[in-house]
Write a protein that binds this DNA or RNA. Sequence first.
DNA 1: CAGCATCCGCTTTGATACTG
DNA 2: CAGTATCAAAGCGGATGCTG
Lengths: 197, 197
Amino acid sequence: MRSYDEYCSVAKALDVVGDRWTLLIVRELLLRGACRYTDLRHGLPGIASNLLADRLRDLEAAGIVAKEAAPPPVATTLFRLTPRGEQLDPVIDSLMRWGLPLMAEQRDTDAVRGHWLTGALQTLAPNEPLSAEVDDDGALRVAVGTDATVSGPARSVMGLLVGALELDDARAAGVTVAGDVAAVKRVVPKDGWPPTP
Amino acid sequence: MRSYDEYCSVAKALDVVGDRWTLLIVRELLLRGACRYTDLRHGLPGIASNLLADRLRDLEAAGIVAKEAAPPPVATTLFRLTPRGEQLDPVIDSLMRWGLPLMAEQRDTDAVRGHWLTGALQTLAPNEPLSAEVDDDGALRVAVGTDATVSGPARSVMGLLVGALELDDARAAGVTVAGDVAAVKRVVPKDGWPPTP
DNA sequence: CAGCATCCGCTTTGATACTG
DNA sequence: CAGTATCAAAGCGGATGCTG
């Protein structure tokens, strides 16, 4: 990316990580740990292969990502965040948090990956043991510890959990709640949050 | 910006604010409050005028910025963050924090604005009453309350304050400290921080 | 002057194909 | 598996012009 040429901390950060795709690569490495090139491609659907190669080179040159040889007998290359790269966690976290209300809208062109949703749910309720599972037709099952599970279309389940849908509306949109409904309500942000985008 | 088409909170956030210049416009509005178009241009040196107009339209459409008529007799337009826009503060803050170590390097093409530095210094030491002043030839004076002032070339002063320079090296690089040196040392991050970029 | 819109050359991106 | 190569299309930067 062309430099902003500003003696400003935000601009200098964006000089390094402001390119298209760059922060999503960091997201993948934060959520999944060390990845192979192929894993990254799977977690970044739509990225051009040459761009991924370019970005990884840039990130390596910036000291954010390091390549390492995987232990035998795997014989492949792994990409991993350096300590400096891991310090981008608050950046990814704040973006994830700010974007949560936008999850109430799902377009039919949107790719879905389970680890993205797990990440979002941990951000939503850091003190609840949430886990997400996606199956092939886009249905989502979220387990709230062993107390409850919420299942249904991803958009509706997330709509309920980010507070954009009331329980009744979510049920009308195909969501079923098994187990303790109160456990689910602990997860949903308090009224007034999230602010409508 | 073209959508990433991912059902992920980070990707959806970047669909909205990931365009070039967009987060720097938000930075300006967070640091300075409501701004005129001309003020924004001054705070974003190098931006093409059509791009600024485009971005402001996009941000308005996304509910992040609102236009308002300035009270008479000024008769101009003010651009201001909406509540949803103000919630980007943690995003800007985390980027600013991550970028702090990069302030140890200043290129001679870098534009300098006092409010950028004031913002960075507040992030560096939220509990210290720091204020920054820049004069025309790029010299910087930082006041640590009434206890001390640090002055010299911007890069050297910031290098000292972000911990990239020892006091002796900073002095050799043209920095002078007036008043209580201990007050300055309170500001500088503890040893081992910042990590070398 | 404030707030844009238009035009144009250049760079970056996206899509696809190909390779060690 | 881990990338390169190629090329059309989109985005960006810089200059300039227009309108109230």
